[in-house]
Design a protein around this nucleic acid. Sequence first.
RNA 1: GUGGGUAUAGCUCAGUUGGUUAGAGCACUAGAUUGUGGUUCUAGGGGUCGUCGGUUCGAGCCCGAUUAUCCACCCCA
Length: 462
Amino acid sequence: MAVIKPSLAKGTRDFSPVEMEKRNYIFDTIKRVFTKYGYREIQTPSVENLQTLTGKYGDEGDKLIFKILNSGDYLAKVPMNLLEERASSPLIPHIAEKALRYDLTVPFARYVVMRQHELTLPFKRFQIQPVWRADRPQRGRYREFYQCDVDVVGSESLLNEAEFVLIYHEALANLGLNDFTIKLNNRKILTGIAEILGKPELIVDMTVAIDKLDKIGLDGVITELLDRGFSAADLEKLQPIIQLQGSNVEKLERLKQVLASSSAGLQGIDELETVLGYVEKLTGDAELLNRFIVIDITLARGLNYYTGCIFEVKTNEVSMGSIGGGGRYDDLTGMFGLKGLTGVGVSFGADRIYDVLEELGLFPESAAQSTNVLISNFDKLAELYALPLLQKLRKADIAAELYPTAAKLKKQMAYADAKKIPYVILIGEEEIQSGLLSLKNMQTGEQRKMDETALLMLLSSS
RNA sequence: GUGGGUAUAGCUCAGUUGGUUAGAGCACUAGAUUGUGGUUCUAGGGGUCGUCGGUUCGAGCCCGAUUAUCCACCCCA
């Protein structure tokens, strides 16, 4: 067999021990917060039926789903005309009936529908698993990445939305981030704005354009709106709305005036006010309410399915796409035949958070753990002497290893150093005879002799 | 899907107007030190200069194609 140059599939990464320790630090931190708010973990398969996923993410999204080629003679049953026409898209359902999951929300909706009879509502779940997208990789964008989703189904209460704000704030603060923005919007406000312009059918065009405000500027947005069918008169009404300034309360007051004639718009405003009210009652934290939370009516993510509040989190400390997002969808499970079940949830982008923490140097020293003590290996005799000690150390919950061969001591010390093992026990002829073992502290270089009992005591307290 | 950059040792990169046998730092191996790492000194291994073709007496360098990769747009975590 020919030797292949080793390489990774595009947009995927290996994780070294050090990287895994840092990743687990992120997962553990987020997980602790989820659990504290009453959410319980589930997992779903990496592979879903393609049918489950298609049509849920829009045309663009469908293209980004990784399809899995059927096994066996997958061309045998394909209609001949599709092959002759080389029609790729219609061919897909004939040659691929499975796909890798694209997000965690749709599999969760499927899970809820399949288990509707055993779930007690409201059902609060979190899920931390990889998802796959056939996107073109770039900074902060991978083809395989982890999402940390937390959702509740079967509860209309806006307390849930308020708690997601707290979850974001608490988890990100625990990770050491201190300058980030939790952007909030409500789909109903966007509906209201389109209504007062008299162009409710253009809501998607409107939001896609104004969403780009901070990227292409006001002039760019105006050009795009004109291209998408808005008139100069519409723009005069829109401009003050999209450039809304002031505190969150001021923005909402202003919107109330503008959207006075739209019941949907007013309801959206009311919902945001309720969420802010809950956050205030829960925390009384003025900084959270005025600095971290920003009402931003240009926020328009995932418009296809969100129906109420919309969330997005960005860090202001490094240049990076959003590190989290989410929202409410009134008919989460409708696509699988279970009507009238509302859901709301948010997601943390673990890989982007990793990149941010790395860039800011925010990983704590203790995120890296390794062996506590290495027993050196001089010769067969010393090895035999060391074996019972090795197990005693482990029984005392001390991470210990014996160097597996009688290599040169220099090599064994270098191994301990490379692995950042803080202690090395040296057992030679002299130590065996006296029963006093040499313990070397690799940080200070200090070396002392002591018996097993003293050794165990010292190591278990370190 | 659209646009731009890059490709030289395991890694990060130098390499002069095209001219002898392609270099450095880090990493690795060995020795200085037969029971001691992280510092120091010495020596050593390691290259199809991404690939294919063209120009030239001569190509790492110039030209074309191709592949890989990075960045940006669209969209997203």
